[in-house]
Amino acid sequence: MTLFSDYQAILFNRRGRVLEVTLNRPEKLNATDAILHTELARVFTDISNDPDSDIVVLTGAGRAFSAGGDVAWMQEAIDEPVRFEQTVREAKQIVFGLIDCEKPIIAKLNGHATGLGATIALFCDVIFAAEHAKIGDPHVSIGFVAGDGGAVIWPQLIGYARAKEYLLTGDLMTSAQAASMGLINHAVPADELDAKVAAFADRLANGATKAIRWTKMSVNIGLRDLATKIMDASLAYEALSNITPDHAEAVRAFAEKRAPVFGQRK
Rank of each mutant, 00 (worst) to 15 (best):
F4H: 10
S5H: 12
F12Q: 10
N13I: 09
E20Q: 14
T22S: 07
R25A: 10
N30H: 07
D33F: 12
I35C: 14
L40F: 05
V43A: 10
V56E: 06
T59F: 04
M74N: 10
A77I: 12
T87P: 00
A91E: 02
I94Q: 02
F96G: 01
G97M: 03
G97S: 02
L98I: 04
D100R: 15
D100C: 11
E102S: 13
N110T: 15
D125V: 00
F128I: 03
E131G: 03
K134Y: 04
P138D: 00
P138M: 02
G143C: 03
D148H: 03
G149T: 02
G149I: 01
V152W: 01
P155S: 04
Q156V: 07
I158K: 09
A161P: 11
R162S: 15
L168S: 14
L172E: 13
L172T: 11
M173C: 09
A176W: 05
A178K: 08
G182Q: 07
L183F: 07
I184R: 05
K196M: 11
V197F: 01
A198Q: 14
A201C: 07
A201W: 10
G207D: 10
G207I: 07
K210H: 14
K210N: 15
M217C: 05
V219S: 04
I230V: 11
A233K: 14
L235S: 00
D246N: 12
F254W: 15
R258P: 00
R265F: 09
